[in-house]
């Protein structure tokens, strides 16, 4: 469930912490394991990480369910992380999220039939100056409008 490559990378994180505190590497470990398992975590993979770091499964699950950057449902090739916090909301993010949902024919949290895209509402990404905004991969897209969304989303492959 955890590849040897990932294990090596986890080990590199473990040594950064004092001996006996290997569980501190859980966030990186979850990230690495998620990356090689269709970009999502399942109870089994979480348990595998916990076992590898010699910590209780529930303790790893606490971390995995706390942070936004871990997925627990199937995701598309591209995840559109749409900010819905105050600046974006005041600038119309709610209407744009609905527009995007209608355009893709899915609700937030669901994946399009072709497995290409899913939409996730996230908390503030620190780009209030360009609200409303979303993130795809490492790229921020700011000052969104319906037309701009069409252009960006239609360009995703």
């Amino acid at each position: 469930m955890i590849s040897n490559k990932a294990k090596k990378q986890i080990d590199a994180w473990v040594v950064k912490y004092p001996e006996g505190h290997q569980s501190s590497a859980v966030m990186e470990a979850l990230k690495l394991v998620q990356a090689e398992n269709d970009n999502r975590l399942t109870p089994d993979t979480i348990q595998a990480v916990a076992d590898y770091l010699d910590m209780p499964g529930i303790a790893a699950a606490e971390v995995a369910t706390f942070y936004e950057n871990y997925n627990h449902k199937p995701v598309g090739k591209h995840t559109i992380r749409f900010c819905h916090n105050i600046s974006c909301m005041l600038n119309g993010s709610d209407e744009l999220i609905t527009y995007l949902e209608n355009k893709l024919g899915v609700k937030t949290g669901e994946v399009t039939k072709d497995g290409l895209i899913n939409v996730k509402k996230v908390e503030c990404l620190g780009a209030c100056v360009g609200a409303p905004m979303f993130q795809i991969g490492d790229q921020y897209y700011e000052n969104l409008t319906a037309d701009k969304i069409d252009e960006i989303v239609d360009g995703l492959k």
Binding site: P43, I46, Q47, P56, G57, I58, A59, A61, E62, T65, F66
Partner: peptide, 20 residues
């Protein structure tokens, strides 16, 4: 000595539950 219950999720979605 066995952590069986834990707090998953956060904010209003936080739940106290066992794993698996």
């Amino acid at each position: 000595g066995i952590m069986e219950m834990g707090g998953t999720g956060r904010g209003e979605d936080m739940k106290i539950e066992p794993f698996l």
